[in-house]
Amino acid sequence: MLMFTNRIHIILFMLSFSFMGLTAQVPATPMKDKEKFKKDLVEMTAAVNTLESDFIQEKNLSVLASKIISKGHFCYRKENHIRWEYLNPYKYLIIISDGKLFVKEEKNQKQYDIQSNRMFQEMNKFISGCIQGDILNNEKDYKAGYFEDEKSYFVRLVPTAEAMKKMLSEVQIWFNRNDLTVSRIVMLEPGGDYTRIDFINKKVNTDIPLEKFSFK
């Protein structure tokens, strides 16, 4: 796991945890009522106690003819318990719970105290912000554009800081129009490479035991 010190890196790192997707048809019709969308999103996330989903991550590198596909499972439980697990073709687990962050790689595992580290504090805040929709209010770091089509609400976040722009040209978030859950997130890089994460088999307010967020 990366050990970054400056804020841009923190934000970038945190972004990578959020729920993602690209290159499919991007909704181009401006959202008719973005304030209502934001209000509905806040209401929806307030009603969500748990959320779990499988995800498929697709990394597209221009130097490769094929994409790097990885799959895993994501769990969230209020307040601020997050489990992000890669299962195939490699194993990698991130748990954020009770002010601590736990990372388990194939041959290595580490635990960090979020409160003692500004980076982890920011990360925790960011991930929660994504789940609760607060990220859309971060007008300081991103310029947001709101769009929609018959299936999705679509938010395009363009980084405003120069250092961030070198790493990411754009972050795209798709929300399912029916239940406002995030269905896809895409991180676009300036050179055209991108990471897309699709969320499938989403389940809201199921019983996810706290043990899921245990470090043991």
Binding site: M1, L2, L12, F13, S16, F17, Q57, K59, S70, Y86, Y90, Y92, M167, M187, E189, D193, T195, I197
Partner: peptide, 8 residues
């Protein structure tokens, strides 16, 4: 890259 796709 990080596991999550960020290019290093």
């Amino acid at each position: 890259l990080t596991e999550i796709g960020i290019k290093l």
